[in-house]
Amino acid sequence: MEEITEMNADLLQKIYIGSSFEKRPLYILKLSSNRDRTPKSAIWIDCGIHAREWIAPAFCLWFIGHKDRTMTRLLQHLDFYIMPVMNVDGYEYTWTTNRLWRKSRSKHGNNRCIGTDMNRNFDAGWCGKGASHNDCHEIYCGPYPESEPEVKAVAHFLQKHKDHIKAYITIHSYSQMVLFPYSYTTNKSKDHDELVSHKAVYRTEAKVAGNNLFPFLSPTDLAPGGSDDWAYDLGIKYSFTFELRDRGTHGFLLPPNLIKPTCIEALSGIKTIALHVINNI
Rank of each mutant, 00 (worst) to 15 (best):
L275V: 12
R73S: 01
Y91G: 01
P149F: 09
T249Y: 15
T97S: 11
G18C: 10
V277D: 00
R247Q: 15
W54P: 01
T5Y: 02
P84G: 11
R24V: 00
V151C: 13
I259Y: 10
T204A: 06
K260E: 15
H156E: 10
S175T: 11
H156A: 14
R37V: 09
R203T: 14
T185S: 14
T185N: 05
L179P: 03
W126T: 04
L100Q: 08
M83F: 07
S183I: 04
T5G: 00
E150M: 10
S173H: 00
V208I: 15
F63H: 04
V154C: 01
W62F: 15
A274V: 08
P57I: 04
N279I: 07
V88D: 02
K260Q: 15
D123F: 08
D79C: 06
Y202D: 13
E3Y: 07
D68M: 11
L26Q: 12
Y81K: 02
M177E: 03
L158K: 11
T94F: 06
K190C: 00
G65P: 00
G142T: 14
A155Y: 05
A206R: 07
L11Y: 14
L222E: 03
W62E: 10
F157Q: 02
Q13Y: 10
I64H: 02
K162F: 04
L234Q: 10
M177Y: 06
K103G: 05
I171Y: 01
R102D: 03
S19H: 13
H161Q: 11
M7V: 13
K160S: 10
T116E: 09
P57V: 07
G210K: 12
Q13H: 13
F240D: 08
Y144G: 01
P224E: 13
E150A: 13
K260N: 14
N119F: 07
T116N: 06
Y27A: 04
L254R: 06
K30S: 10
D228A: 07
L61F: 09
N211T: 13
F122K: 11
S175L: 11
R247D: 14
H276D: 15
F80D: 08
G210E: 12
K67D: 09
V201A: 01
T272C: 13
T5C: 13
P39E: 00
T204C: 03
W95Y: 07
K207F: 09
P181R: 06
G235T: 03
E6H: 07
P39F: 00
W230K: 01
E22V: 02
P181C: 10
